[in-house]
Amino acid sequence: MSTIYDFTVETINGEQQSLKYYEGHPLLIVNTASKCGFTPQFKELQELYEKYKNEGFTILGFPCSQFNNQEFNTINKTISYCQKNYGVEFPMFAKIDVKGKNASPLFKFLISEKKGFLTENIKWNFTKFLVDSTGHVVARYAPQTSPLKIENDIKNLI
């Protein structure tokens, strides 16, 4: 059976990083966008990260422009915007596709592990996947789900 540790992702510097780096830690993996109605969720995501990072929890952000082109053209603009407006310190990665023929293998895996309510596809920005410390996907949350509403689920994994 696969886990997220079987995947490699591209960093904001264009380097490949194995997700084995996060082995043994619970994660929240989120497809993000800087110009979306849900963009203010960055504030709550950062709050959760600050609150639980010393207990091994982290958030991995993956910018995506597939939903009404709501992401900046360059990763530098994205990172600058997220840090300036929301104080984002959790790891962010290179812009990716989360659906369609060019979808990231990681997101194909996440979707296969936890289907959505109406469809397995990701419907919008800020779909969230909670991963336990063994690399297994334990929950999927809709874009409109406030990050703070899943805090208890996070605490149960720490």
Rank of each mutant, 00 (worst) to 15 (best):
D97C: 12
K155M: 08
E23Q: 15
I150R: 01
N13L: 02
K20M: 12
M92A: 00
E15G: 01
I96N: 01
L48G: 11
P26F: 05
I29R: 00
A139D: 12
K149M: 03
T3E: 02
S112C: 09
N69F: 12
Y52R: 03
K128W: 09
T145H: 00
E71W: 04
K101Y: 04
K95T: 14
F67E: 07
F109I: 05
E44S: 15
S65E: 08
N68V: 12
Q46D: 13
P91Y: 03
K51A: 15
T11K: 03
G37Y: 06
S80N: 09
K77I: 00
E151I: 00
G135K: 01
V30M: 04
A142M: 12
K108L: 11
F107T: 10
A33G: 10
F38Q: 09
V98H: 04
L118P: 00
S133L: 02
T78L: 13
F107C: 07
S133G: 01
G61N: 02
G135D: 01
P26I: 11
V9H: 04
H136T: 10
S112P: 04
V9R: 05
H25G: 02
L28A: 05
K101W: 02
F57C: 02
I158K: 11
V137D: 04
Q16K: 14
K149L: 06
E113S: 15
P105D: 15
I59L: 13
V98A: 02
E47P: 03
Y141C: 09
I122Q: 09
Q46A: 13
W124S: 10
L27P: 02
C82H: 00
L148H: 03
G24F: 08
Q66H: 02
D132T: 06
I154W: 00
Q17E: 14
N102F: 08
P63I: 07
G56I: 08
I4G: 10
E47V: 12
K155S: 02
L148R: 06
E44P: 08
T39F: 06
E44R: 02
Q144V: 14
H136Y: 09
I75V: 11
K101N: 13
F93C: 05
